[in-house]
Design a binder for these strands. Structure first.
Lengths: 243, 243
DNA sequence: ATAGCCAACTTGTTTATACAAGTCAATAGA
DNA sequence: TCTATTGACTTGTATAAACAAGTTGGCTAT
């Protein structure tokens, strides 16, 4: 499947950075040079550079060039999630075996409280799924999801044990676009202590998120409770001139 | 100071969303209509839309239009930092009095250990600053910063008590561009317990970051230790088609 | 009535071009 | 030797135009 040109260029430069072709502190070839190398216009090159900048790989400097500010060493903690690296990439990089255990699966209707907490309309029919994610046999994530039933009527406990996103994308042809995540830390609840390898810690790192599909329908509310010393989140912020 | 057109458009649409002119679920005027309204080309409009999309405000839908997926209610926790809202904006929105107390100020030279932890070159001359940030009189952030002395030779304890960034930008004319942040949770250390209003909690939410100036020099390493129940971080992730 | 098609929208990608503005080194002039 | 300027780079902003591709609603022919 031939993707857009700017995606190919993005991918190429990103791989080169990760492989060390361009090291921390190096300057990329100038935009005009990349234009020739990539066989496209400056606009297209700039688009790829823009994405990599937003992700914290590059720092363009007016009049000087585009500098690489990603160093593989700094970025290598056991497990990082966020702008710079996706969940599955991180698992793969650390060659971790990922297993999923479904510990809860039910259908329910959103009441007032749940509606306020999740953002679903009251009376929405939902699936409520609770899962434990283990990496190399060690349970480090307790996932609690609510899915909008109308968007995925055929969801079963079995599918939840594999990958729900595979089911959505490959079976239903749904494409997932945007998700908003919120990171907090809270005291551990009994489920955390029961399910997770907390090693005596009494708190968890929580990521809650709302996920939208390409039709603008919020179809998932997630709460992921992480063992804090095994996970960290990386974010890159580009400071706007706007106050 | 007249900023770029795309920034003005970005600002305008953002304000309209926050003010409720465009509500959650609404579609924006089409790009062609905005082109007329803003008196510019489609490219410029699309640029503003692109930023707001990356920040989690908008969801463009191919062939349908651009939908607003930000709702003021959902976004309103006491204090949020991240893509969608800046630190000072959040403080202002909640009309909180911000005060800073300097509890440590020293000069030192980076040894091997500190170098590996912070990313500064070994033997770099650094300022080490420790500060408590209070909001409405309540101490909720313990900030530990290392600054590269060569980039800001005149830093004093007094300046640290006001705003170091004001000093850098207004006095030295430095512009800050990019920062990489890393979010974790860890058990509280004695300093946390001594300085912060933890209300019995025994863990903190930690944000570590490296800040680059416009010359690509990493001049700051920060570790902010937050009272976990008063802070949360919001991030927006746009899922690329790229695996 | 309905199935299918089509026209008029929408956003997505790419090219081409022009000028503005910051950087840097070489050069010319004092 | 030092300073100022110039010119050749760099990235930043904006315009204009064309075509691709997804969506929607109405119209037509069955």
């Amino acid at each position: 499947m031939p993707s857009a040109k700017y995606e190919q260029i993005y991918k190429k430069i990103r791989e080169d950075i990760l492989a060390g072709v361009y090291a921390f502190g190096d300057f990329l070839p100038s935009e005009n040079e990349l234009t020739v190398l990539c066989g496209c216009t400056r606009n297209t090159v700039r688009r790829a550079i823009g994405i990599l900048t937003a992700e914290g790989f590059l720092l363009p400097q007016h009049g000087r060039g585009v500098q690489v500010i990603y160093s593989p060493e700094t970025g290598k903690s056991l497990f990082t999630v966020g702008g710079i690296e996706s969940f599955s990439e991180a698992a793969q990089r650390n060659s971790l075996r990922v297993t999923t255990r479904v510990v809860g699966f039910e259908e329910l209707r959103a009441d007032e409280t749940l509606s306020r907490r999740t953002g679903f309309d009251p009376d929405s029919e939902l699936f409520h799924v609770q899962r434990i994610r283990s990496f190399s046999g060690e349970p480090i994530i307790y996932d609690e999801n609510y899915f909008l039933k109308s968007e995925m009527p055929g969801l079963t406990r079995k599918i939840a044990g594999r990958s729900i996103y595979d089911y959505l994308e490959k079976e239903l042809g749904m494409t997932i676009t945007t998700s908003k995540r919120r990171v907090t830390a809270e005291p551990a609840i009994p489920e955390d202590i029961r399910y997770l390898a907390l090693h005596g810690l009494d708190f968890v790192l929580i990521v809650t998120g709302q996920v939208f599909n390409s039709r603008g329908v919020m179809f998932e509310y997630t709460q992921s409770r992480h063992v804090p010393d095994r996970v960290c989140f990386i974010e890159s912020a580009v400071r706007q001139k706007i106050i």
